[in-house]
Computed example of a mutant assay.
Amino acid sequence: MTRKARILDCGPEEFRGMDGGELLQSIRLSEGRTLMAEILHPSPPLVDGASNAAVAVAFGADLVLLNKFGGEDLAGIKRSLGRPVGVNVEPSEEVEEHRRASRENLSRLEDADFLVITANPDARIETGDLVSAAHTARDELPDTPLLCGKMHGSGGRGMPEASEIGTLAEGADAVLIPAPGTVPGSLESAVAELAQAVHEGGALAVAAVGTSQEGADRETVRGISLSAKRAGADVLHLGDAGLSGVAEPENLMSASLAIRGRRHTYRRMAMR
């Protein structure tokens, strides 16, 4: 890229020319109007002839996050989608190798546009584990934007402490926090305090809907989306438990309409 651009204004050509720093800046310039869709990579597609990631892009996703990704052709996936593509990794030896935040697994993810260090419900992970994994990822893939944190309780308590969030922000480019209304105790005011702690640490705040509410009714998703933006989120994330490994597609569109209106929603859907 030769100029600073909002992610709102970027299509496949612009994304192909972005480095990690430019991607982060494009999100920052968009003032809370960035939508991330998580895809459970092993799941069968909702419709024949189109991957779940392609459906998410068609319904307005700016960023695509692959969960439990065991494939190899990240570059091919990126070309077909025309969007930045990231991968989840977890600092746990209890999960399969292709899900771990290990040096061996990270080395095969050099084509990822961003990495997310987090925890699925079957792996109890503490803040210290996330911080340690972040250091490993920085060493292995120094130019790849790093997102770090929990989308939900991961088998434990849901809401993290502001001090934990500050620690994560020191080592990551963006920190995941539960979106308002997703885990017990996630009042908008409480999430706003976490978002403030993230920003004070110099990172972006990602409000995550990882509690299967990505498959709720559109009114619920719309409310969560607006609440997350009011709380200070730079990115709204919708998880992969809507139906078959992807958020309910119309909920992606509803979230997009809520945080950025029809103009930018329809443009994003058309930018193929």
Rank of each mutant, 00 (worst) to 15 (best):
G82V: 01
L106K: 04
R222K: 15
A5V: 13
L238F: 13
P142A: 08
E13Y: 12
A112M: 14
L252F: 14
E164N: 09
P12F: 08
L81Q: 03
G82R: 00
P91N: 12
L74F: 04
K4E: 12
H98M: 07
S212C: 07
V57Y: 02
H98R: 13
E94Y: 06
M269Q: 07
P145S: 01
D173C: 07
Q25K: 13
L226H: 13
N120P: 07
A5E: 09
A112P: 00
R83G: 03
H98G: 04
D9I: 05
G17V: 06
V131I: 15
A172S: 15
K150F: 14
D129A: 04
L29W: 08
A192D: 01
K229S: 14
R222A: 15
D62R: 05
G156Q: 14
S80W: 06
L23N: 03
L106I: 11
S225L: 12
K68R: 15
A233T: 10
N105M: 06
M151A: 11
V191K: 03
E90K: 05
L204I: 11
A205W: 00
L168H: 03
V85M: 06
V131G: 00
A179G: 04
L81K: 03
R99H: 09
V64A: 10
P178I: 06
T136K: 13
K229N: 05
P42Y: 07
S254V: 11
N105T: 12
R268Q: 14
I165N: 01
P145N: 00
P91F: 02
A174C: 08
E170F: 05
E126Y: 12
A216L: 12
L243E: 13
K150T: 03
A190E: 14
S154M: 06
V191P: 00
E219S: 13
G156V: 10
E110T: 13
I224H: 05
A137S: 03
S189W: 00
G202D: 04
D19R: 14
S212I: 09
V87R: 02
A50D: 06
E248C: 09
T34M: 09
A172T: 01
G210R: 00
T182N: 01
A37M: 08
G181H: 05
I177W: 00
A56C: 08
P145V: 01
D62N: 14
A205D: 02
V55Y: 06
P142E: 01
N120M: 13
R79P: 03
G82M: 02
V131L: 15
E161D: 14
S30I: 04
G242N: 03
L130S: 04
V116D: 02
S107I: 12
H152D: 15
D173G: 05
G202K: 03
G261E: 07
V57K: 09
R272I: 07
H135E: 14
A54P: 02
E219L: 13
E250A: 14
L8R: 10
G17Y: 02
V198G: 12
T182F: 02
R267I: 08
N105V: 13
G202F: 11
L29K: 07
S26Q: 01
G149V: 00
M1I: 10
A197W: 01
E104T: 13
N120K: 11
A172D: 01
T220H: 10
M151Q: 08
S132W: 03
S92I: 09
A174L: 04
R138H: 02
E93A: 09
